[in-house]
Design a protein around this nucleic acid. Structure first.
Lengths: 340, 340
DNA sequence: TTAACCAGGTCAATCGTTTGCACTTTTTTT
DNA sequence: AAAAAAAGTGCAAACGATTGACCTGGTTAA
């Protein structure tokens, strides 16, 4: 089975040259003659030599590994985000070290520590729910590990971040619903504590106001994301004297629960009431009642953008030297409407 | 910003002892006096010293990193599997290096190479679709990197693998449907080339036969997983003189498409026809028409089992020494019925 | 008294690779 | 033909931590 793994030493010995010559030959150093280079490369290939990245990265203080931390990988949004991150990483010869926070700060810290101890070159993170602080990530500073925040970003300005503009997307969605002739647009928001809720609500208010209509808070409900919570919200909306003719759900899960409840009350989905949502799961196209319109945040693209930003930061890092004035990057992607 | 990262050397210098003393003090070596140990540990804490795993792993030829390769992370099944893997890894001080094959052998090779070059301690892999060979993983042997196959396992016996028994699960599902009084049970299978299709079909045939009924291949349809493919299958089943009173779909995606189509033909879901499926997505509980019964493969548990197996293999690996007779582990988990 | 022993350390090699510097040969320039 | 430049290599240190072998000074047993 496992014969000893070939090293640069082995090649040097067999060719009767020094290890430094081999090292330089393999990296195409100009001071090495073509003849020697060829001999070395040939033998390297014959032995299936592969540089030991552990040793190299140890020496160069680089790992070519990026840590990626998300709250929950089985949320479609994040798994797609990771895919985008991974694609760009691969293209650049980087690999991904992976961790989940399960929306717990405690776990998040733990994962961050693991990443630190593995000496990743950088960390891309989507903060755990309800967190917009990033103190527990300060430890990475000491190790000079850059951080790119992704989607769930801290509010502070002095960080690198990639996120999408839900505000504009929401305004657009309402504009579109108006164009379909809907005037009583209801909104099932998430818990008020979430930044994501505030963003959406602000967009909702702006969208409604822009049409010179007054905002009716009767039309704004709230859910804790449980099926019951959503059912209560829907039930109240449907029991209004003037029930809505369009309902925007916080996300696709809420949307599905909303539809389920509305169906049971005999509502004709997307006829009596148009259902809209924020796209975050991909099964919609398979379900019987997808939302007619969604605000899509393009998680894959966001992932790509985050990794590109990371690559950029890493390439500008003057190795080992103190950064005089780190420029923080801010990438706001547009959220767009998609129709089913 | 980044002051230099503390090393063992730094501690030694400040305490005027040798690096070896520091190293031993930190690892609680009996030869070091309590006094020295305490002094060292105290300073280490004060400086926020953290061992450089790159250096350690380089020296010890261990990385404490496990490579995990799955076809598609945004398939619920795999993201849950990864979560299970990650949980056990965390508990054991391991981290996960992550890669997707996108069901392409080419990509799979690429990822395997990346893992190899990162010198992971082991690889857990779910093979890309339609592959049950593992030749391209042989390269890992040369580096003595153990492999645990997960869910999509090769048919060869001399490998470590974890998978679930779909055959039994399918038989059980049919038994249950019979108990509900259903006698005309149809089955929408996947492409014949897939092992997963064969497993299910075998279970189906066994389940039907066990009730001393003859298997009617009219009741077995096939889909290529496209919405149209599934619609065609459903359409044909519904147009039979004796249409089915139960339909088992290959998976939840197929199930949703099937329901969508059946609805449009006026079928009362789960009344006229009971719908069953193989659980692989978690949104089912939110959808309006979940399958009444599913065969669940418990991906999270499978992930845990795979990682535990890996830990076991790693702990039995007599470091550096040639393994005389590697014992291959085989873990077949039971797939169980779940009801909605 | 002297060898034997022990506690508590230190030394130095090692892992695989990179890289600045020094050292030979050539080749070129004067 | 001598000096200078260029080309091609080798030496050895370095990265951070581990570890077997080797000191040192004191206590104990013979």
């Amino acid at each position: 089975m496992s014969v000893s793994i070939p090293t640069i030493k082995e090649i040097a010995k067999r060719l009767n040259v020094s290890v430094s010559t081999v090292s330089r030959a393999l990296s195409n150093h100009p001071r090495i003659s073509e003849k020697t280079k060829e001999a070395v490369k040939e033998l390297a290939k014959a032995l299936h030599y592969e540089p030991n990245s552990k040793a190299i990265f140890f020496k160069q203080k680089k790992s070519h590994v990026i840590g990626v931390i998300v709250p929950l990988i089985y949320e479609d949004f994040f798994s797609k985000g990771i895919s985008g991150i991974e694609a760009i990483a691969m293209d650049n010869g980087y690999t991904i070290l992976f961790g989940q926070s399960y929306d717990s700060i405690e776990k998040e810290k733990q994962v961050v520590d693991a990443m630190k101890s593995q000496r990743v070159d950088g960390v891309i993170i989507s903060l755990s729910k309800e967190t917009n602080k990033n103190d527990h990530l300060k430890v990475l500073d000491a190790y000079n590990i850059p951080i790119v925040y992704f989607d769930r970003v801290p509010s502070a300005a002095n960080v690198n971040k990639v996120y999408s503009n839900l505000f504009d997307g929401t305004v657009q969605m309402i504009e579109w619903l108006f164009k379909q002739g809907r005037k009583r647009i209801a909104f099932i928001n998430g818990p008020a504590a979430l930044i994501a809720s505030k963003e959406r609500l602000d967009g909702y208010i702006e969208g409604i106001s822009r049409r010179k209509l007054k905002v009716d808070m009767q039309m704004v409900e709230q859910t804790d994301f449980s099926e019951n919570g959503t059912h209560r919200a829907i039930a109240r909306l449907l029991s209004l004297k003037k029930p809505p003719d369009a309902i925007i759900s916080f996300n696709d899960y809420v949307h599905m629960d909303a539809v389920k409840c509305a169906l049971s009350k005999g509502i004709k989905i997307n006829e009596d009431i148009l259902f809209a949502s924020y796209a975050n799961i991909s099964v919609n196209k398979h379900t019987a009642y997808p939302p007619v319109v969604s605000v899509d945040q393009f998680p894959y693209k966001q992932g790509e953008a985050a990794m590109k930003m990371m690559m950029d930061i890493l390439s500008h890092k003057t190795d080992g030297v103190e950064q005089p004035d780190p420029d923080f990057q801010n990438c706001e992607l547009e959220a767009l409407l998609v129709f089913n």
